[in-house]
Amino acid sequence: MENTKRKYVIPGDVITSGPYRPEQNVILDGERIIATAIGISEIYDDTVRVISLTGKYIPKINDLVVAKVLSHSSLSWELDINSSYVGFLPAADVFGRDFSAHADELNSKLKKGDLVVARIANSDRSRDPLLTISDRELGKIESGELVEISPSKVPRLIGKRGTMIQTIEMATGAIITIGQNGWIVVSCENSDGLLKAVKAIQMVEEQAHIANLTDRVKSMLESKGE
């Protein structure tokens, strides 16, 4: 990597010391700035952060996520969002304002094991994250294949200004829905395209720390073999 200010770090490593501002995955200990996660440290201007290479998804308001229905009560669904917390989808979000716990059967809309694209509507320290699927691009996923990557590698999969994901979609003809939680749904009419798209995503997962990854993925996608 050209930027000499990037380093591989593990928890406890001292990244630098001096008048820097600590951002993600670092703490200030006196003058020292210390990594709290395995990843790549970056110093930009006066800020220091670590791009983590592992860990669970931390819900943020407005994030798009792929979620799996776990169960429901008479008033809401519980969804696995690959996080420390279970996502909460109120029945009214799906049935509308006139939802009636007596008349409307939650099972008729979403069942255990169904996958949905959802947005984090609210998330704070005291409550489980609130989800919504009432928007045009949201809702139940009817077809495709689920691929799981580490949530910390999602930015790498998208790439700078979306270059990585566009490269994969163009080369394979696949439509890829990226959840910020690391769950990705790939659908493609052509089974070879599907296989290649999944392989490209797995490459990003395995080699996220390596420079010129986009070129590597490109050459894999262009190769005829496999």
Binding site: L70, K112, G113, L115, I141, E145, L146, V185
Partner: peptide
């Protein structure tokens, strides 16, 4: 674990 419906269908 509960598997997703898409994989079950597949």
């Amino acid at each position: 674990s509960l598997i997703d419906q898409l994989k079950g269908q597949k």
